[in-house]
Every structure is written in C-alpha cells, then in structure tokens.
Design a protein around this nucleic acid. Structure first.
Lengths: 338, 338
DNA sequence: CACTCCCTCTGACTAAAGTCAAAGAGTATG
DNA sequence: CATACTCTTTGACTTTAGTCAGAGGGAGTG
C-alpha cells in the first residue's frame, strides 16, 4: 500500500505540475492537439498511423491535418502505391515550428535542472530512467497468441532477422520452429504493439522446451526477457511439465546470463539444433498448484484473454541497463516515443 | 544535455501514458475538471483558494461548484467572518464519490504494480520518491524578500512556533531578530507559497551572521535547507563578507549536521543568544568574484527578482529522507498536494 | 467484375473548457 | 460615509475536443 500511495502522489504531482507546464509551453499559440499532432508527424507519417497512434477519430484528424496544411506547416500527399492512404510531411516552415517546440521544451527542462547541483542532476536522471523502465515493464502485458497470428509472425520474423545478423553462420526464417509444433506462444504487448515473444514446445509430457525467446530492441533493458521466461515456466508448470530445457547460441551472451541467473543449469547437448552452443535445464516447482488462469491456454490468439498477471522476476538482480533504450541520443522530434 | 533528453523523454512518456490513464479513470462519468475540482475541495476549501490553486476563471469555477451542488456532492456556505467568501465542503454523498475516485486511482496504481516483482516495486517506489523530491527542489525558487513582508513574517512566525515546541525552554516571537537588523532575508517559494527562509545579519563588515534558517515541514527532506544555506553564503560573499557564522540550539541535531557537512567548523561561543548551544563558522571563498545577479539584493521583496539560480549542494551527500514528506500515510483525499 | 473492405473526407452535432465584462454584495479604510 | 477594493455570480460568448453517420474513391479477392 505504501507503494500505491507513493506512486499516486507522484502521479498527481507530476501530471499536474510538470506535465501541465509542458503542455502550456507546447501549446502556446496553437491548440494543444494540433501541436501534439505536428509533433507526432515528426519527419513524416501516414494518416492511418497517426490515427492509431494518437487514438483520434478519423474525421477529427482529417480536419486537424487540413488546418496544419492551411497554416503551411505540413504537406499532404497520396501514398505512392496505395492511393487510399495519405502521407503527411512537414514543410520547412513546419520543421521550424517543430524546432521551436523542441527549443521550448528543452528550455523548460533546462530551467528545472538549473535549480539542481551536478550530483543532484545525475541522481534525478538516474531515478527518472529507472522509473520509466519499471513503469514501461509494468505496463507491458504478456498473453498467449496463436503461433500463426500476425503478431506472432511479426515477432518471429524480427527474431529471425536479428539472429541472422548476429550468428556468423546466419539464420533463416525456415530455421524457426513451425507453428504447428509450438504448444504455447506468449507475446508481450506494449500498448498493443508486440514487443517480445517466447514459445513453448512439448516434446514429451515431462519436459517442455522454450524456444524463440525474443525482446524487441526498443523494449530491451526493461527486464522483459526475464518476465517472459518466468511466465513461460509458469505456463509449463500449469500444463503439468516438470522440467523446462532450452538451448542458446554461443553468440548470445546476455541470453546465457539470463538463464544462469534465472536458476538454469547447463546440461549436455540434446536435439539437433545446428545453432545451439549451450544447453540449459531447470526443474519446475511441483508444490501446490499455483492458482492462475493458466491451463489450456495454447493457441487462442483471439485477444480475449488478458495477461495471467503472474509475478515475474526472481530476485533483485534484473540487470537492466546493459542495452536500454537510452543511448540513441536523439532529442525527440523525429521519434515517436510510443 | 543528456539530462534534458532523459527528463523530456520521461515527461512525454509519463504524461501521455500514465497521466492520461489516470485522467481517464478519474473522469469516468463526470467532466474531468469537475472530478478534479471535487478532489481539490477535499474535506473543505474556500472558492478563492480553489480558484488560485487550480488557476480557474472565477465564473467557470462558480458554475462548476454549482453543478456539483446540484448533484448533491457539495454544500456551499458563507464564510462565518467574511461573508464575501464562500466555503465548499463535500456532503456525505460527495465523500462517497471521493472515496470511489480514490479507489479507482488506487486500483490503477495497483494494476500497474501488479506487473512487477517485489524488488522491482521497491525500486520503483524508491526511484519515484527520489524523482519527486528532486523535481520539487528544482522547482523551488529562492529570492530575497523584505524582512517585514507578509511572506517573511509567515515563515518567521512558523519558525518561532516550531522552536517553541522543540526547545525545552520555549521560544517567543520576540526572540526573533527584529526586521531592521536583518540585512538580507531569503525566502524559498514552492509555487509561490513560502516554504522556507534564512536571514543574514551584518554585525560588522567582515563577518555575516546567518539566522533563522528554516524549512517548512512539507518541504523537508528535499535538500532545501542546504540550498538556502548555500545561497546565503553566496549572498554574504557577494556583499563582501569574508566569514559567516551562526549558532544553533543543542536540540536541533539535523541543523548541526547540516552545518558540519556544509564546511562549517565549531567555534567558541559568541554573542548573547540564550538559546544557542553550538557556534559555527565558515570562511567564504574570496577568489575571482562569482558572476551572479547578487549584490545589493536586500529587502526588495517586490517579487520582480527571480532566483539567482546558484548551484546549491556541496557534494553528493544531501542526506535526504530523514524526515521527508512521506510518513503521514494519508492516501490523498484530504490533502492538497500543491 | 461484382463485392467487400479500407481509408479519408464532409457535414452535423454535442460536450467541455475557457474567456470577458458587468453587476451585486461585502469589507476595509481614510 | 464615500471610496476603493474583493469575491462571487450571471450572461453571453468562442474555441477545443470529441462523436457519428454517410459518401466516395481505391484495393484486394473470389
């Protein structure tokens, strides 16, 4: 409860004070939503994209874009291949306006920081980064999806593409486990956008095998890998398996570290995965069955089932920060932070 | 710049995501501003207070209060002594509504926390608390005020009242240094509300004396004491003094600790303060004069002069958290967090 | 090539938020 | 006790925000 109180007080303080200030500065001489829209357009976007990202009504959006166009800030063009779509891009004047927006927002942040000493700034930045990471992690939901669903495919092809880059021998989409051999596929959603996955295969009744554990680059450093791993283990336990095993490539150092700190022990080679270099195993607790809405969750993918809400995380050793979403150093304009 | 970027990204993330969620939950079946207003009324407030606190137009506020009254959620009464003023207080139904609001907001926060492990929750709470403390400190401005101005008097009488409680021998308002003997009085404002002060006397050209360093209970644990102390030292240096000295009561342990870690050394007794038990001194740096808008800043108090923006804090040892604004355990309703 | 989706635009609204000015009732003060 | 000032109320707006339904042009598919 102390957690809730602290979080709520912070929420109140922040949105009413800092957030309000920010909106005030952003808006200035233009309706807030229009300013926001310009910001989200960034260096260019399609109406469709903006509509879903901002959750705006199509009609409302259309009119606002028209207004920005009337002010000479954006230009609207027809999509080259699909002429139903409209593309919006800022004009030079629009870019200036965006730059001005950024300057104002930067000035606001700088003004705030000016009241702090160097070490206080460092501490603030650190605390803010930790808060953001944990809140993002907390707001990510993990739920089963059909192994052949678009969301699952999106994750798995991104996974394959990444492995193809990282493995000296390459990795083809055909190296993936075929959908029909996947017993359960968990997908992690951040604001309904798939940002990670993990599959469970069931070679026999006793053992489950974890495959294709992957986290989107944008969501790395949050502790999501561990959360997916833990939820997969819970799912396996719920299905009656006693052991989970998995293999990993020698190039994936972080993965091996994740498994080791997650209670896995290295075992001799099994199976015929040509990419594997390490093999791990963990026996699942078989005590009183954990009450959770698990069970036959495989392959629903209809989106009606929400996250089982299990407790992820084993201890305090999440080890963030190795490759968090920081680091790009971009200051905002061109990037949609959602 | 990395600080600015991180802070801005966080700001964006938080207001658009968590803040929006919160508003969504708070609003539900009632206009958002009406819900907010009910919240701000808490256990009772005057219209005037609400107007300044929420920055609302008088007419708009009047109508909203009327709407809440129409729904049976609040009762409006005339102020007992000044019948221009109106007092608003929730009816039992209003209290229920508030409790429901709180329940929803708690549920939201709990839902967020549910996705985190115990240690992650602890880390989030800690990070959030640090963020709030530092942002509050950053948004506090310190500026000179007339020693006889209402703001100054408010601080000094609160200071005297507190000492009266803490000193075994008591402390009377008449024990305060009279306004005309104060050379400079700095007042700290949090959102234009005075939350701390510190006075500088000038017994001779060489030495300045710091008196009446005080921080409001609500603003304790932020590091404001140190900031005031540092700004007083800068002011003294700017006025040409070479040494500052001060005394403190033996009952004020935190004060003595603040001075020790702030570079003060204990010296033999001086002066005739019957409440003093420790005496401290610090010599001021006399190198190249620090460029800052200091100088003859004493006794302006007209509010036109903004914080000199000096760097407070000496090192990384701010030592917050001894008696921060946590601890009350109240969950919100009755308390205006501004 | 008919049929069904998709995406966008337009018209027609409603609700909420915010602004301005004038007036009425009260207080404080010289 | 006249005068200036405060606080609130009322009327009369304007602007933003948000919703809904229908029309029109295009894409994709059997």
């Amino acid at each position: 409860m102390a957690h809730v109180t602290t979080l709520r007080r912070f929420n109140r303080y922040f949105t009413r004070r800092i957030g309000a200030l920010d909106e005030h500065y952003l808006g200035r001489d233009r309706p807030l939503n229009e300013a926001r829209l310009l910001y989200e357009i960034g260096s260019g976007a399609s109406l469709r994209e903006l509509r879903t990202r901002l959750g705006l009504d199509a009609g409302y959006l259309s009119r606002m874009v028209r207004a920005l166009e009337g002010q000479g800030l954006v230009r609207v063009t027809v999509h080259p291949t699909d002429s139903r779509l409209r593309l919006v891009a800022p004009t030079p004047a629009g870019r200036d306006e965006l730059a001005e927006q950024n300057r104002r927002a930067d000035a606001l942040a700088e003004g705030l920081l000016r009241g702090l000493s160097g070490s206080q700034r460092d501490r603030l930045t650190e605390a803010v980064a930790v808060t953001e990471r944990l809140l993002r992690l907390a707001s990510i939901t993990v739920r089963p999806a059909g192994p052949a669903s678009p969301d699952a495919r999106a994750c798995l092809t991104a996974y394959a593409a990444e492995l193809d880059e990282r493995f000296p021998e390459g990795y083809a989409v055909t190296d993936l486990v075929p959908p029909e051999r996947i017993a359960v596929l968990l997908v992690a959603y951040e604001e309904e956008r798939p940002v990670g996955c993990g599959a469970l295969c069931a070679p026999d009744t006793d053992t489950a095998e974890i495959k294709h554990l992957w986290v989107h680059l944008d969501a790395r450093g949050l502790g999501l890998g561990r959360r997916l791993l833990t939820e997969l283990e819970h799912t396996a336990a719920g299905r009656g398996h006693r052991t989970v095993r998995l293999d990993t490539h020698t190039a994936l150092k972080e993965a091996a570290a994740l498994y080791r700190t997650g209670g896995y022990t290295e075992i001799p080679a099994y199976g015929d995965n040509p990419h594997a270099g390490h093999w791990f195993e963990k026996s699942l607790p078989t005590g009183p069955p954990v009450s959770r809405p698990a069970g036959g969750t495989a392959c629903r993918g209809d989106g009606t089932q929400r996250s089982p809400g299990g407790r992820p995380g084993i201890g305090g050793t999440e080890g963030h920060g190795t490759e968090g979403p920081e680091g790009t150093g971009r200051s905002g304009a061109g990037r949609a932070p959602r």
